[in-house]
Structure formats: structure tokens, C-alpha cells
Amino acid sequence: MAIVTDNILMQLVRGTLGKQLTIYERNGQIIMAAKRGPSTKKPTQKQLEARHKMTIASARAQRLMADPEIKAYYESLAGPGQNAYNMAVKDAYRSPEVQNIRLEGEDVVVTAKNEFRVAEVEVKVIDAEGVITESGQAVLGRNRIDWHYKATALPAGGKVIVVAENLPENQTVKELLLT
């Protein structure tokens, strides 16, 4: 790979020359590289899983780009050489992280993070028999990381299930056993 500078001919040429050389532009720089061909190796299981995950992320990102507000949000986060779609794919590739669930009296406080933003957090309270006694949306706190849910009762022997979701609708589920 070579980066071309101060060559008027290369300023105008893009594409593949024969079957040997490719000339393209990335981040304002002109790059010459040997033409790559398709791999002759069979993809590994991890590669196939990553490709499948990327296909899903791409489809979710395309759906997000249809909403002008969300597109503007991702556009505001894009750096040099990036665009809103790149940011949306990056967001759709990863799920939010539920770092902590803690109880403060009858309040359930959930610490959830995402590289971009957590869209919503749902809290379900389940009794010892496995019946959902209540559920609802948590409210984002002032620190923009903690989500608060006011439970009416937290039954002993039950559990609290938390579902954090980001803009592309990736979900992370975590539970806390009540003692």
C-alpha cells in the first residue's frame, strides 16, 4: 500500500488497473494498493457468526436511517471519514451493558451503559412462585447512567429482571435475586 502525494495524474484516477492495482481515496488521501481477490480459505465458525451479526446490525442501521431525528443524532457523533450510517451500524453491533442492579428501599436502581445511549430500561418484579407482580419503565436519573424504578413491593424469594435496550433495539437482560 502506498499513499500518493503531489501527483496530478493520480488526483484524477480511481479504480482498478488491470488485475494488479487498485487506486482509491480514504479520508482525503489517495491510496494505491495491490488488488485483492477473494479468499480461498473456508471461513471459520467465528467469522461466520461475525458476518451474521454484521448483517443484522446493517439491517437495523438501515431501518434507523429512515427516522430523521435518529439520523441527525448519529450524524452529530460521526467523526472525520464517518457518517450517520457508520455510527448506527456500530451502535447496532453491540448491546447495552447492565453494570449493576441495586435496591434503595423500594427503589430499583439500574446502572446501564452503552457507547451511544440506552434508550429504555424495563423492570419486572417477580414473586417466589414466578408470577410477575409488576413491571414498568425506569426513569433516567440526572447522572444519565442510573435508571430508577419505584416498586410497590419487593417480595422475598422473588427476583427483579431488568431489560436494557439501545436505539437499534438490542437488549440485555439481567436479574437480581431478592432475599
Rank of each mutant, 00 (worst) to 15 (best):
M1S: 15
M1Q: 11
I3G: 00
I3Q: 07
V4N: 02
T5A: 11
N7S: 12
I8T: 01
M10F: 15
Q11N: 14
R14K: 11
R14D: 14
G15W: 09
G15E: 03
L17M: 12
L17P: 00
K19A: 08
Q20W: 07
Q20L: 14
T22C: 06
N27I: 00
Q29D: 09
I31T: 01
A33H: 10
A34I: 04
P38N: 15
P38R: 15
S39L: 09
K42M: 15
T44I: 03
Q47F: 08
Q47M: 12
L48M: 13
E49C: 04
R51H: 06
I56Q: 07
I56K: 06
A57N: 06
S58D: 07
R60A: 15
R60F: 13
R63L: 14
R63S: 12
M65Q: 09
A66E: 09
D67M: 07
D67Y: 12
P68Y: 14
E69A: 15
E69Q: 12
I70Y: 10
K71H: 10
Y73W: 14
L77G: 06
A78E: 07
G79P: 02
P80S: 15
G81Q: 02
A88Q: 04
A88L: 08
K90D: 05
K90S: 12
K90P: 00
D91A: 15
D91R: 01
A92Q: 02
Y93E: 09
R94M: 13
S95K: 15
P96C: 10
V98L: 11
Q99K: 14
Q99D: 14
N100E: 15
N100A: 07
I101Y: 04
L103C: 06
E104S: 11
V108E: 03
V110S: 00
T111Q: 07
T111E: 09
T111P: 01
A112H: 07
N114G: 01
E115R: 15
A119T: 00
E120R: 06
V121Q: 08
V121T: 05
E122D: 12
K124L: 15
I126A: 05
D127K: 00
D127Y: 03
E129N: 05
S135G: 08
Q137K: 13
R142K: 13
N143E: 14
N143C: 11
R144I: 09
I145M: 04
W147K: 02
Y149A: 01
K150F: 14
K150H: 14
T152N: 09
T152G: 02
P155E: 04
P155C: 03
G157I: 08
G158M: 08
G158W: 08
V163G: 00
V163H: 02
A164G: 08
L167C: 01
L167W: 05
E169L: 15
N170H: 05
Q171E: 14
Q171L: 12
T172A: 10
E175F: 15
L176F: 11
T179S: 13
